[in-house]
Nucleic acid binder design. Sequence first.
DNA 1: CGACGAATTGAACCTATTCAAAGGGTGTGG
DNA 2: CCACACCCTTTGAATAGGTTCAATTCGTCG
Lengths: 250, 250
Amino acid sequence: MCARRKTPLDIHVTAEQQCSVDLRLKILGQLPFFESLTEDDLTKINPFFREVGYLAGDVICHAGDPAERMFVVAEGRVRLVRHSLSGKDILLDILGSGEFFGSPGVPEGEVFMETAVAQTAACVLVIHRADFQNILKHFSGVTMKVLEVMSLRLRAANERVQLLSTLPVEGRIAHVLLGLGEKFGQKNRLGLLIQVPLSRDDLAAMTGTTPESTSRVMSAFQKDHIIKTGRAWVAITNWDGLKAIADPKV
Amino acid sequence: MCARRKTPLDIHVTAEQQCSVDLRLKILGQLPFFESLTEDDLTKINPFFREVGYLAGDVICHAGDPAERMFVVAEGRVRLVRHSLSGKDILLDILGSGEFFGSPGVPEGEVFMETAVAQTAACVLVIHRADFQNILKHFSGVTMKVLEVMSLRLRAANERVQLLSTLPVEGRIAHVLLGLGEKFGQKNRLGLLIQVPLSRDDLAAMTGTTPESTSRVMSAFQKDHIIKTGRAWVAITNWDGLKAIADPKV
DNA sequence: CGACGAATTGAACCTATTCAAAGGGTGTGG
DNA sequence: CCACACCCTTTGAATAGGTTCAATTCGTCG
């Protein structure tokens, strides 16, 4: 570990990007939609998952690939990106441990609409579409939970549509920071540090704006002591202040 | 039927906003997620649905209501609206026959995030959350189909995020018109007439812009012979022209 | 026919983008 | 271990696209 680094981020990834068998079972058990399964069930479905390690920047799956697999993030951070004809990429989400991507419900013959990229070194569990659907057939509790997760994601997506339609740039950035803070936040001497490498470009791609505008807004936030930020990291120092900007009363 | 009306729209709704028993079974059978059921199964689940009629403008369910029911549009058009603190409403979707709302997957204790309003006189089938979940438990084919529909909706929502993030107003309006054309379009002496009452305010609320900007864009489209439009109606006369604006190559 | 609501249009304003240039942290190779 | 190169970030100034506010026209319905 380099001693001179200034980044306050500390994202642990198991050596060689390999997760131990213990970790695999633990990850599987912690998945929201496997919470209803017993140890026994977990050991039964475990063999269907293959485990793959990635380095930061590696592409895990490409938009346009046949949607024949489903992925679960075991360790690390994974970006879900949508490419536009204009060349402007949209950062749909950043996934952490326990989250899945590659929708389990899409009909046969479909392709992925998003590209998944490892934002940090990452360990990912992969399962074939057919195998996962078998699991769904066997365990109705799992299916219900998957439905629930999909519903909540649809909600989140609709909320984003609303934000993009109604809020100015600073409001949208405030919203994204709050969301990332809830998901990846870690209390710290700096404040609530978001444990994700987060560049201005990333934030811009998440809020439908430009890196320059993002930079201006972030500078203003920092001047107002709402956040502390540096090269590819952000910490929230005034949660309520951010909230006030994210949900303007008037 | 009034003889002097200029609106080319012609949306039929059964008298008294009541659907016949035949229509109910037909509607249920046509639902994407009930397509795997036999006549027999349909007759079995039919009693769980209650049927309610609404007049244009009636509120079917309110954002904030407990999410204890699920709705299926039998006839008419239903608007799904999200309210913002700023007062600016977002029109998330316009539903036609066979589409459902009131997510089947949301966890117990949750509330609706959207308000559903009858945009025309409408007939809606209502089922209790618990009853629907029972159906899901009994018919795994139904569950899979619901998952599929949810996946496709999530895709659509994500695509909208992308459009709002990357396209200028005219591109977003073009996209919405194409979508509505596919869904509600009907060939006609005018072109492809969208069988939905559609005001400038509605289009603005669907594309995250203002009625004035919408009006300017629509005027420009009409001048270029891409659409024909009047008070609360639109017909597409040059599909490929619209497409070119919706998906700019550069 | 008259009135109301919807749609159009104009002009001023403002937010955010674009283009350009300079500053600063990180990591690499000498 | 230092120096350099690269990329991220910041900041400035000009511009464009969209909004806002206001006034007018038009269509539809009573």
